[in-house]
């Protein structure tokens, strides 16, 4: 265990934890906004897969990471439009629709990959970027300011989303339609219009999260996200529907995962013990969810479709 408590290993672990947390954070922040307006999207995983494939394919064909990021966002936005029509216009049950989106994303991303690419082909993805001045700070600089741009973007979006939800008229409308849509409607707020917008933003962020994963890894493979989207949804509950809480949950999940990986690498845990320790992130998430669910409630109108006069 003494091998773990060295400066270099601890710094590497924290840096890895932050890197691992970023895709969860991007997707979970988007889902937070959607859920605050009363819309649950269990299809985050599927949107992430499509965003990941879109970003990967665009980068593969053009060598432009920026275009890859934009395609990831655009694919997410398109899926947001689809999900909005299905759940708001057609009033389909949100849970089932979300599962449908997941299965659709899983299947389509794999089909496109098989048809258009075939064998996993590496791309030059996102490189770490050292923030000028800050990157040179001892210890902190190495951990916090030697990451790729989408990691910075994920963490910068936390205060942005907080401001959007708590300090803007749009955020007030989001909270209102998520808690008492009838009251919001009586005050002239467009409930479905607000929800369309949150779904669009949320799905765009899910697409961006997928892009972050594919471009960080520099590769795409069938089911690349491997459950990231579902964990992101859990992290929304973990964070009690607050951007800072979601960030804390993502960091805990990332850091615990990175710590377990380091322990295995250094031989601190092995065999059955390693497998048991490997479950820590999931077990911790469940424990926190149990505690959080007793203390805070979900938005009152979550999963409830809005129909004027009913």
């Amino acid at each position: 265990m003494s091998d773990f408590f060295t400066v270099s290993v601890l710094l590497a672990t924290v840096a890895a934890g932050i890197r691992l947390a970023a895709p969860f954070l991007l997707a979970a922040l988007g889902e937070t906004l959607g859920q605050r307006s009363g819309v649950l999207n269990l299809g985050v995983e599927g949107v992430m897969l499509l965003g990941a494939y879109g970003a990967y394919y665009a980068t593969l064909r053009t060598d432009s990471v920026l275009l890859g990021i934009l395609v990831g966002l655009a694919v997410g936005a398109f899926m947001g439009v689809v999900y909005g029509v299905v759940t708001l216009a057609l009033k389909a049950e949100q849970g089932i629709s979300g599962i449908g989106v997941f299965i659709f994303g899983l299947g389509l991303s794999d089909l496109l990959f098989q048809r258009q690419v075939g064998t996993p082909t590496p791309i030059d993805g996102l490189r770490d970027w050292e923030v000028p001045l800050l990157g040179g700070l001892p210890w902190i600089g190495e951990v916090l300011f030697h990451q790729n741009v989408l990691v910075y973007a994920a963490f910068l979006l936390v205060p942005v989303l907080w401001y959007l939800i708590y300090r803007t008229p749009f955020g007030m409308n989001v909270r209102a339609v998520g808690e008492t849509p009838e009251a919001a409607d009586s005050l002239g707020v467009s409930v479905n219009g607000t929800r369309y917008l949150t779904i669009l933003i949320g799905n765009s962020m899910a697409g961006l999260a997928g892009a972050a994963l594919a471009l960080e890894l520099g590769i795409f493979q069938q089911n690349l996200t491997n459950g990231h989207g579902f964990i992101a949804i859990a992290l929304v509950y973990f964070g009690a529907w607050r951007p800072a809480g979601v960030m804390a949950g993502s960091l805990v999940f990332g850091l615990v995962s990175a710590t377990v990986l380091q322990w295995k690498t250094l031989g601190i845990v092995a065999g059955t013990t390693a497998s048991i320790v490997g479950m820590f992130p999931a077990v911790l998430t469940i424990l926190v969810l149990v505690i959080v669910s007793r203390r805070t409630g979900a938005p009152s109108a979550l999963t409830r479709p809005f129909e004027r006069g009913r």
Binding site: A16, L20, P23, N226, L261, K264
Partner: peptide, 18 residues
């Protein structure tokens, strides 16, 4: 380092990084 998954590409990348 056994990552306990056949398919988690991101975790495999972090294991290699470690």
């Amino acid at each position: 380092n056994y990552i306990d998954s056949f398919s988690d590409v991101a975790l495999a990348a972090e294991a290699a990084q470690a």
